[in-house]
Amino acid sequence: MIRVQREPFDVGEAYGRLISGLEGKVGGVAMFVGLVRDFSQAGEDVRRMTLEHYPGMAEKELERLVEEASRKWELLGHVLIHRYGALELGEPIVLVMTAAARREAALSACSFLIEWLKTRAPFWKLEEDSKGRERWVEGE
């Protein structure tokens, strides 16, 4: 399942949907949840953030990443949800889940997906500090 959405996501529901029908086949599920934290990469304070995205390309890029991961590891299922819009401290931003027969494939694919998503998926973070000043997060 791949989703780009404004609304929060329910980790439990996504997990249930991922393993439904795969009982007995799945040996492990790996998960990464990215959250809004109260400090930036440079250590400045963060009060909230807004995520901008490129509608259409964002979904396609996530699909391309999953295709790539599926060529490298034997995955039985995946969940990739990325949010956009206004997000408060502590809110979830991104969810990556991978299901496989063996833990190594699930863990490696999950790590691959979140790392590559950060450099390829067209999303941009605009942080706001406690004084209401905005700044774009610098990409690499």
């Binding site: 390309m57 396609k60 991104v94 950060k118 450099t119 990409g139």
Partner: peptide, 25 residues
């Protein structure tokens, strides 16, 4: 809607986007 480099030709292309390095995740 696919990442490209500057040498990519634009024949028949309908949509081109320019943006800073991405910072999702």
């Amino acid at each position: 809607q696919e990442h490209v480099d500057e040498s990519t030709r634009l024949d028949g292309v309908e949509e081109v986007a320019f943006f800073p390095p991405v910072t999702g995740g």
